[in-house]
């Protein structure tokens, strides 16, 4: 897998990660190298293996539909970088 700057840009945009020109170059070489290592997985035949997402096969875990005390709204807002009253403030969403 050859990682090129366009792929780095695409992935960084998906991840909403800002890049400096230096970062971009660094990722091209680092990701290429790491993926080259990861590709040793391709030497294995795992066609019949069921993908393992959870280590154990727990099933059907619910909570009851019971009203519980919720934390005060102020708790949720306490760490807000910017807010107005009970709302989180963000840059304008649509142009």
């Amino acid at each position: 897998m050859k990682v090129d700057p366009a792929l780095v840009d695409h992935v960084a945009r998906l991840a909403r990660l800002g890049l400096t020109p230096d970062d971009r170059l660094r990722y091209v070489s680092e990701l290429t190298r790491i993926l080259a290592y990861v590709e040793k997985l391709n030497t294995l035949d795992v066609a019949g293996a069921e993908p393992l997402v959870h280590p154990f096969e727990g099933r059907n875990v619910f909570r009851p539909d019971a009203v519980q005390a919720s934390p005060p709204p102020e708790d949720g807002l306490a760490n807000a970088p910017d807010r107005i009253e009970k709302f989180f403030k963000v840059p304008k969403v649509i142009e």
Partner: peptide, 13 residues
């Protein structure tokens, strides 16, 4: 990548 790694994960287990 991801799906393949999960299959290898199964083998490891």
């Amino acid at each position: 990548y991801y799906q393949k790694a999960l299959k290898v994960r199964r083998r490891i287990k």
